[in-house]
Amino acid sequence: MSSNTSSHIKGRGAGSNTVSRFVELKREVVDDGWAPEESTPLRTELFTDTSRTIINSNNSPDVPFTYSINPYKGCEHGCCYCFARPTHAYLDLSPGLDFESKIFAKPDAANLLKNELGKRKYVPKVIALGANTDAYQPVERQLGITREIIQALKAYRHPVSIITKSALIERDIDLLAPMAETGLVKVFVSITTLDRTLSRQLEPRAAAPQRRLETVQRLQQAGIPVGVLMAPIIPVLNDNEIERLLEQCAGAGAESAGYVILRLPHELKDLFVRWLQEHYPLKAGHVMNRIRDLRDGRDYQSEFGERMRGSGQYADLIAHRFALACKKQGLNRRTLELDCSKFRVPPKSGDQMGLF
């Protein structure tokens, strides 16, 4: 069983390893006055996910995709605000440090994808890659699962949208650029803040903000449609950056921009409050009060239509500021629709070629 730890670990986002909501017996660390033993670095452990399917279906009306693929469960980027953290509870692991140090990879993802795309009843719709956890997190450099997935999608001429905060996506420009020429790909780079100190605290193992801007520029120069996501907007901490951040993103070549208000489902609320008390103790109360202003007096709203944007006057103000900033920077002038009509199952070795 995982237990709580009381000290922040350098290079990690969560300040604790609190047990999941499905575990009845909980433990806490209590200071008994003895000097703590010297802590050892928390190493990332890699496990194999043996799922038999790879395409997830989505029916949420406020999420703009029907299908998604997540090559990894858990994410080493360690973002303290990650809404996906509570999913580790389904593995009987902690949404805290376990989520960012116990990573489950799907090494057979590309083959599973080919099997599913090859089914007679499959209807092609845009696949969101990395919508839950980042498909380009550090372990991808070693395993290359995401690259294999993109190679399969390219072979099937299947449209894909990619969300990442990693510069590693530049490795796959050789695949993405040809797909972009035929309307099969668009990329969204998540940029939460331009403040390097805040970013290092919020997202300890993700690329620096300025490096992500370079990624936007390099994707755009390669002819790949690229947008940005300010996700999440956190009251008091980064909401003052909306206009400046969008100006920098537009200058780097972004064509579109969107945002998500901070979400705190299940265990994430306690993890985030603990993070606030660790890094911004004088602002913690103010931040949480502002979050409740956005959530009808609650810490979180799970209702469709409100969970991403919040509600009330403060939420309306953020929406208005974001829209004005986008208009000023020329963002969102056009909506890129990816092309599903080009999808085809490539012939297998030994298949009879058609005469016409």
Rank of each mutant, 00 (worst) to 15 (best):
M1E: 08
S3V: 15
T5V: 13
G11K: 12
S16P: 11
N17V: 03
T18V: 14
E24T: 14
K26H: 13
R27G: 07
E28N: 07
V29F: 03
G33P: 13
W34G: 03
E38G: 11
S39V: 06
T53W: 02
P61S: 15
D62F: 03
S68E: 07
N70A: 03
Y72V: 11
Y72T: 08
K73W: 10
E76N: 01
E76D: 03
H77S: 00
H77V: 02
H77W: 01
C79Y: 01
C79K: 08
Y81W: 09
Y81K: 05
C82E: 02
H88L: 15
D92E: 09
P95N: 09
A105L: 08
D108Y: 12
D108N: 15
A110E: 04
N115D: 10
G118D: 06
K121G: 04
Y122C: 05
V123Y: 05
A128L: 02
A128S: 14
L129E: 06
G130Q: 02
A131V: 10
A131T: 14
T133N: 06
Q137L: 00
G144C: 14
T146A: 13
A152D: 04
I162Q: 03
I162A: 02
S166R: 09
L184H: 03
L184F: 09
V185Y: 06
V185R: 06
I191C: 12
D195L: 07
R196D: 09
T197E: 10
S199W: 00
Q201K: 15
R205V: 00
P209E: 03
Q210R: 10
R211W: 02
V216S: 04
Q217C: 02
R218A: 11
L219A: 11
P232S: 08
P235Q: 09
V236H: 13
L246S: 08
Q248R: 13
Q248P: 00
Q248H: 09
C249R: 03
G251D: 13
G253N: 10
S256E: 07
S256Q: 11
A257C: 08
G258C: 04
R263C: 01
W275K: 06
Q277T: 12
E278S: 07
A284V: 11
G285F: 08
H286N: 12
I291Y: 14
D293E: 11
L294F: 13
D299K: 05
G305P: 08
G305C: 08
S311L: 15
G312C: 05
G312L: 09
Q313H: 07
A315M: 07
I318K: 01
Q329M: 14
L331I: 10
L338F: 14
D339Y: 05
C340W: 02
K342V: 07
F343H: 14
R344L: 15
P347W: 06
P347A: 03
S349D: 07
L355N: 09
